[in-house]
């Protein structure tokens, strides 16, 4: 269970409050207007920004003192999820051992993960020679081998076309459910949320609301979301 305990985050003068829990194994969409603080929230959970006050707890443990790489978190950013000078296999292997030294078992796990995301046989390629969709799959393969119980997505598929994005969301949901991982994903598109998210967290007006079932929220959106959805429709 992820518990944000009276969390206040953001760099002055921006300020975002969150006091909520996400149950283990749930998939939650994080939705709200641009600049509302969705990325700030995820960056704070991942440990890239220190909270102003409050605590982030995972299964009851405070993550505050942990460096980003020591948290039970795997995160995909908007871009820059692969090192362009390393081949796909090595990129994935970094999820097992950041020094890139793998035994036979590790190599087998990398191959398995690549097969799982449909990149069989492409492990020797550099990211630059892959399509956008294949690059996303490679990043997902790394998330898979990282095997962290909390997965954060900061719109990693925003640059993909609608059909490809839907494929990726299905894949990521499958992977998360197979590992019983908790998934938080930022999105601008209510359809993304409907597609895979059990719950939705609305971010706006300086606060992140506790998650509620996605269908409820999208069928009866709160005021801050109404404005946003109407404006983007």
């Amino acid at each position: 269970m992820l518990h944000l305990d009276h969390l206040v985050c953001g760099a002055r003068p921006f300020r975002l409050e969150a006091d909520l829990t996400v149950a283990k194994g749930r998939i939650a969409a994080v939705i709200g207007p641009s600049g509302a603080g969705k990325s700030t929230l995820l960056n704070t959970i991942a440990g890239f920004q220190p909270p102003t006050s409050g605590h982030i707890l995972w299964q009851g443990d405070d993550l505050g003192p942990l460096a980003p790489g020591k948290r039970p978190v795997a995160m995909l950013f908007q871009d820059g999820n692969l090192f362009p000078h390393l081949d796909v296999q090595t990129n994935v292997a970094l999820g097992i051992d950041p020094r890139g030294r793998l035994d036979a078992d590790g190599r087998a796990r990398v191959a398995e993960a690549l097969a799982r995301v449909g990149l069989d046989g492409l492990g020797g390629r550099k990211p630059g020679t892959l399509s956008g969709g294949q690059q996303s799959r490679a990043a997902l393969a790394r998330i898979l081998v990282q095997h962290r119980p909390l997965i954060l997505l900061d719109e990693p598929f925003a640059a993909l076309g609608p059909a490809l994005k839907a494929d990726m969301l299905d894949l990521v949901a499958d992977l998360a459910r197979a590992q019983a991982a908790t998934l938080l994903m930022i999105t601008h598109d209510p359809e993304d949320a409907r597609r895979i998210a059990d719950d939705t967290i609305v971010v706006g007006n300086g606060r992140a609301d506790p998650p509620r079932p996605t269908a409820d929220i999208l069928d009866n959106p709160p005021l801050v979301l109404q404005d946003y959805l109407a404006a983007s429709a």
Partner: peptide, 10 residues
């Protein structure tokens, strides 16, 4: 930098 930190690269 963030990706390296996220992977606990050291």
């Amino acid at each position: 930098g963030r990706l390296g930190a996220q992977l606990d690269m050291g």
